[in-house]
Design a protein around this nucleic acid. Structure first.
Length: 557
DNA sequence: GAACCTGCACTTGAATCGTC
DNA sequence: GACGATTCAAGTGCAGGTTC
């Protein structure tokens, strides 16, 4: 696994990783990358946009002879990427990425890890380096909320220049030695552990895990019971750790029984922690205060009350199924967004990364699964997923996005697929392989890595009555939006969206393109029919088209 | 105006699945 | 069986609406 040293998972930029003197164009005196004289001011294809500058990060021919790193894919190199460096901001995202990638290379990684964890890490870098400084709405929000049409908008972000530096850290909470037990920010790194423990402890005290159990064991109080509690009558119910009780019908804040329950919970939780419970992993001591625990419980009560309500009044199976499908679609949008960002990061396409950082998963086009036709699926989840084929999804495109932007995104998808198929990053390898295999009359693609392939998304017309829900991002360059769609907007809405009056350059450096090289950028997504992949076992033949000498025997890799 | 409800989106970890 | 990628479901937070 990767070394996470220096990869801050908290907010703010990670501490810079000092590179070795002379390595990757760095000097011992400064962390600022030096640009070799022979590259300074040298006109390259696509120069003027840092997109073009990423050229040379891949492929052999355009790579500088003096490049100290023989593997351009594993360590995107400032030397090979003068446009990226020329942006100059030492705290910029680009620098963060270089540090990250260089450190990975120094660890002897032949190529970047492709695990989800890595991608999350990289996505965090993007969040910290680009997105977070502009997230001014609420500093307790860990992620940028969706750019909802009605929601507060982010300020304009110049995707054409370097990201702004991260904001200064918040001042310390203490004043004159006074220990402030104020509830910690939702960003507190130990908070999720506390939440886990609080959830566990609630299960322990309430003896309930499910909504149905809550419904059965915590029935609402009767009027006379409420009266008895308020009058402190001898027969009033008193909540104790042994007889823990919550009234989910009464107000959590105002109900006397619930106030009693909250107090008992907090006391008992602290006792349990003192007694050694929840110590693996330990809860951060600065969170072990009544206020904090109570606040965490209050938040969890939202979930519990929701669970109770759902148990009491179950949603219709139709509604439930609908929600599940929508939830899965959202989840797949997340995967899609993650893979696109990963692809651009991996290739050092800083400008594209910055553009993507203005988006969120909700802005991705969704996809639909095919419906179950025969009901023969025996696995419940597969049936619920309404899939006919495990890896075929129908793209539900969004109406606001320009064709250019869509093509750009689909190209990153194709690149991602290329990277998946060939970790060495040989451009266009999927297409080359497919062409070669087709000529050979073979039906199976060569795949270098284990695991599921990225899902195959196909463009098919939607049903006539299909309605598409979508979220529109703001503050993007003009040519990200479809002109017709923009024309239909009210003027005030266009103003509100803060559309940048510049056109964005969607091009990719020539030597980092893959499927784009073909006339149809989606060709290698579309030309593989599932039947071909899943053909008769006897007819299949595995084949790997090696590109490097040492890889020619690469079948075993 | 506070508390609560509801819908939506994101995060996280487990499940699933395909390949080696 | 191990590994790795995707999918899924549960948990959670936020925002807007509703109720008191």
């Amino acid at each position: 696994m990767i070394n996470t040293q220096g990869q801050a998972t908290q907010r703010g930029p990670p501490p810079p990783i000092p590179p070795k003197p002379g390595q990757y164009g760095y000097s011992a005196e400064s962390s600022t990358p030096r640009i070799p004289a022979h590259l300074k001011g040298k006109a390259r294809e696509g120069e003027g946009t840092d997109v073009g500058g990423a050229g040379g990060a891949r492929g052999g021919n355009s790579y500088p002879v003096s490049n100290p790193n023989p593997n351009p894919v594993s360590s995107p190199n400032p030397v090979s990427n003068p446009n990226l460096v020329s942006e100059g901001n030492e705290q910029s995202l680009v620098m963060l990425l270089f540090h990250k990638m260089n450190s990975l290379h120094q660890m002897g990684q032949a190529h970047l890890e492709e695990s989800r964890e890595t991608r999350k890490l990289l996505a965090q870098i993007v969040q910290m380096g680009v997105q977070q400084p502009f997230n001014r709405q609420n500093d307790t929000v860990q992620r940028r909320r969706r750019g909802a049409v009605n929601g507060p908008e982010m300020g304009p972000i110049d995707v054409f220049s370097s990201p702004a530096p991260a904001p200064a850290p918040a001042p310390g909470p203490t004043r004159d030695g006074f220990v402030d037990h104020a509830v910690a920010s939702q960003n507190h790194p130990g908070l999720s552990r506390l939440k886990d423990a609080v959830r566990q402890h609630f299960v322990t005290l309430s003896k309930c895990k499910t909504g149905k159990q809550l419904l059965r064991k915590h029935p609402p109080l009767k009027k006379e019971q409420i009266t008895a509690i308020s009058e402190n009558a001898p027969n009033a119910i008193v909540v104790t750790a042994d007889h823990f009780r919550v009234d989910f019908e009464e107000s959590w804040k105002k109900g006397l029984l619930n106030q009693n329950a909250r107090t008992i919970f907090v006391e008992n939780f602290l006792l349990a922690v003192q007694g050694g419970m929840y110590s693996y992993p330990p809860i951060t001591p600065d969170l072990l205060f009544a206020d904090q625990i109570g606040d965490t419980l209050d938040r969890h009560m939202n979930t519990l009350r929701r669970r109770y309500r759902d148990a009491k009044k179950p949603k219709s199976s139709t509604q439930d199924a609908k929600n599940a499908i929508l939830s899965r679609m959202r989840s797949r949008r997340g995967t899609l967004y993650e893979s696109r960002v990963t692809c651009c990061i991996r290739r050092g396409l800083a400008s594209h990364v910055r553009l993507l950082s203005l988006l969120s998963p909700a802005h991705m086009s969704g996809d639909e699964t095919d419906s179950v036709s025969d009901g023969e699926h025996h696995r419940p989840r597969r049936v619920a997923a309404q899939k006919e084929h495990a890896a075929l999804y129908r793209i539900v495109d969004v109406p606001w996005r320009s064709a250019e932007f869509t093509t750009f995104l689909r190209t990153t998808d194709a690149m991602y697929r290329d990277d998946w198929a060939d970790k060495l990053g040989r451009a266009g390898i999927v297409r080359v392989q497919q062409t070669f295999l087709q000529k050979k009359g073979l039906q199976r693609r060569a795949v270098r890595t284990g695991g599921n392939p990225p899902r195959t998304r196909v463009e098919k017309p939607l049903a006539k009555d299909a309605t598409v829900k979508y979220t529109v991002p703001s503050c993007l360059p003009r040519n990200c939006y479809k002109i017709d769609w923009l024309r239909k907007l009210q003027p005030w809405r266009r103003t509100q969206m803060g559309i940048l009056e510049q056109d964005y350059d969607f091009t990719f450096p020539a030597d980092s393109s893959t499927a784009m090289e073909s006339e149809d950028p989606l060709a290698n997504l579309m030309d593989i029919e599932p039947e071909e992949v899943d053909g008769d076992e006897d007819d299949r033949e595995e084949f790997y088209l090696g590109g490097d000498e040492e890889e020619d025997s690469g079948d075993e890799e």
